[in-house]
């Protein structure tokens, strides 16, 4: 086949870190925490025209225990926040979080009594995707930013530190 033919009997060298990062970033399993308008655009991103499968993230999992990327898309009310926190806590490490849209990131146009003004007050967020709602292209861009971030990580060092 193609790859072996061009490589012949040669060997590629890389670091273990890069290898792990490449594997992780290329098969993220999103947990879509979709509540409102942004969820509709997230569904559009996952469906035919925009096709998240191009980035290896089409395996959407609604169980937090099977996923490593939390996409918070939509308004989070004070009644919902404990649920979101619980779901974040249930996700196994390593995990990343995208805060999609103005409401999840800052409350958006809804400066009201019931809406959490930014989920980053309660859970850590890796990438904020602006927009109300963001277009599917925006979400894909945010997703690529997560991939870049993963590529910069040093997973073996983390293991060593935790081990020590």
């Amino acid at each position: 086949m193609g790859l072996e033919a061009s490589l012949g009997d040669n060997v590629l060298t890389t670091t273990l870190d890069k290898m792990i990062n490449w594997a992780r970033k290329s098969s993220l399993w999103p947990m879509p925490f979709g509540t409102a308008c942004c969820a509709i655009e997230m569904m559009a991103t996952l469906s035919g025209r925009f096709d998240m499968a191009r980035f290896g993230a089409e395996a959407v999992r609604f169980s937090p225990r099977q996923s490593d990327l939390l996409i918070v898309s939509g308004r989070i009310s004070i009644k919902m926040m404990p649920v979101l926190k619980k779901i974040y806590d249930q996700m196994p490490d390593p995990k990343w979080v995208i805060s999609m849209g103005a409401c999840a990131s800052s409350g958006g146009v809804f400066n009201t009594y019931t809406l959490v003004q930014g989920v980053d007050q309660f859970i850590p967020v890796d990438v904020y995707v602006p927009g109300c709602p963001p277009r599917p292209e925006d979400l894909i861009y945010g997703f690529m930013k997560i991939q870049e971030k993963i590529q910069r990580e040093n997973p073996t060092q983390v293991v060593a530190e935790v081990g020590a």
């Binding site: 509540t35 409102a36 939509g74 308004r75 009310s77 009644k79 919902m80 009201t112 019931t114 809406l115």
Partner: peptide
Amino acid sequence: IGYLHTGFEKL
């Protein structure tokens, strides 16, 4: 229900 209560009427 109420998990998405946003306060539309108050706004």
